[in-house]
């Protein structure tokens, strides 16, 4: 983040135009966050009234934990969408990292720190490839990541050759399941998410890099003319997305203790992460990103899906519930933002 700040610091020209609308944008962002929090609380209370175990500490802890992996991917996706892009390749990047680090840990006892290094390298390299294809060759992001989706998923098969991760060393399991301190029952993955969220929130809202991202999403030509280096910003955004997807893969393998060739792609993480980002108030048309909203969106999705189980809804309707939730949140959000614009 620091590097990007210093590098883009010459282009102050972009700041004023962003600053003007900052107040309105902040208002809009906060409405979405409040909406999501209120909605989540309403669901919690309503379902909790029917079955008090729904609001038990243990259940809430797992609802949060279950959203961590998806939220990490969705944070990266939020960066990309804010530049008016899209990243479908997050699913195989996540799966590849989970399989590679998991198999190395299982087979040759790779230490956890090494796994972080490998995840970082995988995310950086694959993300950079995406970014270069988008920015240098000016191929539309959806096409680039559709193509790399196929290629990266092939890498998973080539690397794993049909073996799967069944068990991870104790250090990994501790990272995936442990709590920060014995007296502080916050799971480590949740802490990880919180740190990543803070970094993303800060970088998007309070650094020149963040402003460059939003400026590109708003109007790439204007940003370019204003001196924002569109290409390097775009490449960085896909690098961030790749790294966060890879981190999500590592958290996944630590949390579940297993990974197969269908990790990520089989659960359609790419579509889910887009949905979560949009629920959170990020605009698919670019120029608007809401990191806190994304994480709240992931949480809300987890709460809804768990609520369906507590309400004894037949499992075949879970995905319909998810679809309906996306529609309601996003269309309501549209209404609000339009109303906000009008006033």
């Amino acid at each position: 983040m620091k590097a990007s700040m210093t590098e883009t610091s010459g282009f102050k020209t972009v700041a004023p135009s962003v600053k003007d609308s900052r107040a309105t944008r902040r208002a809009r962002r906060e409405t979405r966050e409040i909406t999501l929090i209120v909605a989540a609380v309403v669901v919690l209370l309503a379902v909790g009234a029917i079955n008090h175990r729904f609001v038990s500490f243990e259940n809430i802890r797992f609802m949060v934990l279950n959203s961590v992996v998806l939220s990490l991917v969705a944070l990266g996706q939020t960066w990309v969408i804010a530049t008016k892009g899209i990243d479908l390749s997050v699913a195989p990047i996540m799966g590849l990292t989970a399989v590679v680090t998991g198999l190395l840990a299982q087979g040759s006892g790779l230490p956890l720190i090494g796994a972080f290094g490998i995840a970082l390298v995988i995310g950086l390299v694959l993300g950079t490839i995406n970014g270069l294809l988008v920015a240098r060759l000016t191929i539309p992001p959806i096409i680039v990541t559709l193509g790399t989706y196929s290629i990266y998923s092939g890498l998973i098969f080539i690397y794993s050759n049909g073996t799967q991760v069944d068990q991870v060393p104790a250090a990994y399991a501790a990272f995936g399941n442990g709590r920060i301190a014995p007296w502080l029952p916050i799971p480590i993955p949740v802490l990880t998410l919180a740190i990543v969220l803070f970094l993303c929130w800060f970088a998007l809202g309070y650094t020149l890099f963040g402003r460059a991202v939003l400026a590109i999403g708003n109007n790439a030509v204007a940003a370019y003319n204003a001196g924002v280096s569109v290409i390097s910003t775009q490449v960085r955004v896909y690098m961030i997305s790749g790294v966060l997807a890879a981190l999500a893969g590592l958290v996944f393998v630590c949390y579940t203790g297993s990974a197969t060739v269908t990790t990520g792609t089989g659960d359609h993480v790419e579509l889910q992460s887009i949905a979560v980002a949009l629920i959170g108030g990020t605009a698919i048309a670019g120029g608007r990103g809401n990191m806190i909203g994304t994480v709240l969106g992931g949480l809300f999705l987890s709460v809804i899906l768990t609520a369906l189980v507590f309400l004894h809804v037949p499992p075949i309707w879970y995905s319909a519930g998810e679809g309906a939730m996306i529609l309601v949140t996003v269309t309501l959000g549209m209404r609000q933002s339009r109303a906000g614009k009008a006033s």
Binding site: R53, F62, T256, S258, A259, T262, D267, L305, V309, P315
Partner: peptide
């Protein structure tokens, strides 16, 4: 669990909680 490790885990947690 849709034969997916993560969805199976979530489903397992939900069964036990609910």
């Amino acid at each position: 669990g849709q034969s997916s490790p993560s969805q199976s885990l979530t489903a397992g947690l939900n069964i036990l909680q609910a």
